[in-house]
């Protein structure tokens, strides 16, 4: 019991800082916040879709290319993000994507997709082929709605959480690829972190923590409601 208490205290200790000054929630720009939420929504959707379709393909394919594809999609996990970002900066400069939202979105997708694929892949292998084989007889839409979404709701939530947290952690990526023309809450907040206004910086920290937390809890509720409705329809 004492050991558990000690571990919990160590994990929670850094959060003490949050209560050192009163946050002022009027301070942040609504436009940037909406823009960031939109980016999270699009990026999370694309991540979930691409990660699960690839994991599904890897699970069933007999192609000789499978080990190469696995190697290729997991390789970015082992490449320092900022280093590949320097290269991407040169690629995007060639094709005119620097300073555009598409460029920033693409760079963020490249940063988040390897993690999402890994999570989807692990989730699928934990469930296993025999269980999923039973759903193969269903048409694709029904298979996704009645089998895959309820089975992988946990993995989907984790992918969305990872995508959100990685997106909200990126200052250098957005600043470099966005060339100062595209902003997220993180690029806005970074100035206050580097400055002396502790109250504004704390408000921003609250925002950065609350956004993924609310999203995660909301998705949990949505998933429970969806499974309950589904059970009702099936029984």
């Amino acid at each position: 019991m004492i050991r558990q208490f000690f571990i919990v205290c160590l994990v929670l200790f850094p959060f003490i800082g949050l209560f050192r000054a009163s946050p002022d929630f009027q301070a942040s720009s609504q436009e940037t916040m909406l823009q960031t939420i939109g980016l999270i929504f699009v990026l999370a959707l694309v991540n979930v879709w691409l990660a699960f379709t690839l994991a599904w393909w890897l699970m069933w394919t007999e192609s000789r290319l499978k080990p190469w594809v696995e190697w290729l999609v997991f390789l970015p996990l082992f490449i320092p993000l900022l280093a590949s970002l320097f290269g991407m900066y040169l690629v995007f400069a060639e094709v005119g994507l620097i300073g555009s939202r598409i460029g920033v979105g693409l760079a963020l997708l490249m940063a988040t997709l390897p993690y999402s694929i890994r999570l989807a892949y692990n989730g699928m292998y934990v469930i296993g082929r025999p269980m999923l084989e039973q759903s193969l007889g269903l048409p694709p839409f029904k298979r996704i709605l009645y089998v895959l979404i309820p089975l992988f709701s946990g993995s989907i939530r984790t992918i969305i959480l990872f995508t959100t947290v990685i997106l909200l952690s990126q200052f250098a990526l957005v600043q470099l690829i966005g060339a100062g023309l595209v902003s997220t809450v993180t690029t806005d907040f970074y100035q206050t972190y580097a400055g002396n206004d502790r109250s504004r910086a704390l408000t921003n920290t609250w925002m950065l923590i609350l956004l993924p937390l609310i999203l995660y809890i909301g998705l949990g509720g949505l998933s429970t409601w969806f499974v309950r409705r589904l059970k009702g329809r099936l029984s």
């Binding site: 879709w49 691409l50 990660a51 379709t53 690839l54 393909w57 594809v69 290729l72 999609v73 390789l75 970015p76 490449i79 280093a83 590949s84 970002l85 320097f86 290269g87 991407m88 040169l90 690629v91 060639e94 693409l106 997708l109 490249m110 997709l113 390897p114 694929i117």
Partner: peptide, 20 residues
């Protein structure tokens, strides 16, 4: 199409190293 798109995004990482 989705698998090809995912492979293309992953390839972007390798291409960025060539540009690096």
């Amino acid at each position: 199409a989705s698998v090809l798109l995912t492979i293309a995004v992953s390839l972007l990482s390798v291409v960025s190293l060539l540009f690096l």
